[in-house]
Write a protein that binds this DNA or RNA. Structure first.
Lengths: 220, 220
DNA sequence: ACAAATATTTAGTTTTGTCTAAATTTATTT
DNA sequence: AAATAAATTTAGACAAAACTAAATATTTGT
């Protein structure tokens, strides 16, 4: 797999949104900032290699082989993102570019060891799930903290209420997007709950909980 | 700088051995496992970019710009090697291939943070010096432990006596190539010394010390 | 110093991945 | 169901980085 081939496979995967969708030449060209004719050329090559199903004028979809290839790239990308944030102290929103490069490094041993070193994380700093070595992975959904049951664990990914007051509250309590949050216990009376945020325990009101979005893995 | 250009610059740097030497087309071709005609082509391009001094039929040398570029690649290569050995638990002799890929990742911020994370190491797992951000670096030399003064610190890189008995001794005492060794104190009477090996203190005889090679930074 | 050997460069191709412009197919409108 | 619009493919070109084969320079041996 060349670097360029990997980029196409990954783009087709993302445009498919997990589904077995047929993706148009133009959609790929737009996404990759290239020309439709270039896409056609590359699609033919990927089709030769049995990475995509292709019927002229009808668009492409990934084969099983293509899907597994895409997942292995996604796995590498997200593991590197965890490394950059957890170990090198990058902010969660400045890792994408570098991870785009690192995801192309070829060494199974490296990825295995990196995975172990990071503690076999299930999600990246954006809350997106990390596929396992053999291409399995859970989907993730974005929910308000208030909607989740006790025991749920996820990554803070957004706010409902972006008023100055609420953002100040988050800041004062050292809650940032990208942080890991776990619901420890909920008080039925007022809906307040105690949570673990980056391993630190604290208590938040229902108002707070219904304004903070968490990305959590689906049960299955 | 393309990947290929970086590889040529690095090769010319290594063939120059730190000197301002003129390197032949054939030497580069041999080293890079490519054809002399390809080398000529690339040299012309690098010459256009002021990375090398080139006179037809006379060979090439790096310009100051080229030298700094080479040093930045070497710096990245060696920092990644430290990462692979210290953090991911690779053996010192299996890191080269992966580091060859990682050295081409483009992000100054990444290298700065990696350097900090690793504790600003001065040498890689082979005992070779890591250039600083601005291209300064000390040379290293290979010496027998017995020849070095108290206080010296370096990396174990080889043995003089490769008898089974000696290798067994090293193994039993958990001394491996790639380990960091510091001379703490020497007994004048018998030449025995106490050393720190991977931060563990132990005592070795003169026989041992005169059979173990250390790569140490030169004083200057 | 000159012929032979060796090293280097030039000229012309190849492959990969891209592009433009033209041709063709599919979709949309009326 | 044509006509028009939009999407897609084809054909031909180009740049980067490699190659082969031929031409040219340099070095070496006598």
């Amino acid at each position: 797999m060349t670097l360029s081939e990997e980029d196409y496979i990954k783009t087709i995967y993302h445009l498919s949104g997990g589904q077995e969708a047929s993706i148009s030449t133009n959609a790929i060209a737009d996404q990759m900032d290239t020309k439709p004719s270039s896409v056609t050329d590359m699609i033919k090559k990927l089709s030769e290699k049995n990475m995509v199903n292709y019927r002229k004028y009808k668009g492409v979809s990934l084969t099983e082989k293509g899907r597994l290839t895409a997942l292995s790239i996604v796995r590498k990308h997200r593991l590197w993102e965890v490394f950059l944030v957890d170990k090198l102290d990058f902010a969660w929103d400045e890792v994408h570019e570098v991870a785009e490069q690192l995801e192309h490094i070829k060494s199974d041993k490296l990825i295995d060891k990196l995975d172990t070193y990071l503690g076999n994380p299930r999600v990246d700093p954006h809350g997106d799930p990390i596929p396992s070595k053999d291409g399995e992975f859970k989907k993730s959904v974005k929910k308000l903290v208030s909607e989740l049951p006790v025991g749920s664990e996820g990554v803070c990914v957004g706010v409902n209420d972006s008023s100055v007051a609420f953002l100040k509250f988050l800041d004062k309590n050292q809650i940032s997007l990208g942080d890991t949050l776990k619901i420890v216990e909920r008080e039925d009376f007022d809906g307040s709950m105690s949570i673990l945020i980056n391993k630190r325990e604290m208590r938040i009101s229902d108002q707070i909980a219904s304004n903070l979005y968490l990305e959590v893995l689906e049960k299955n």
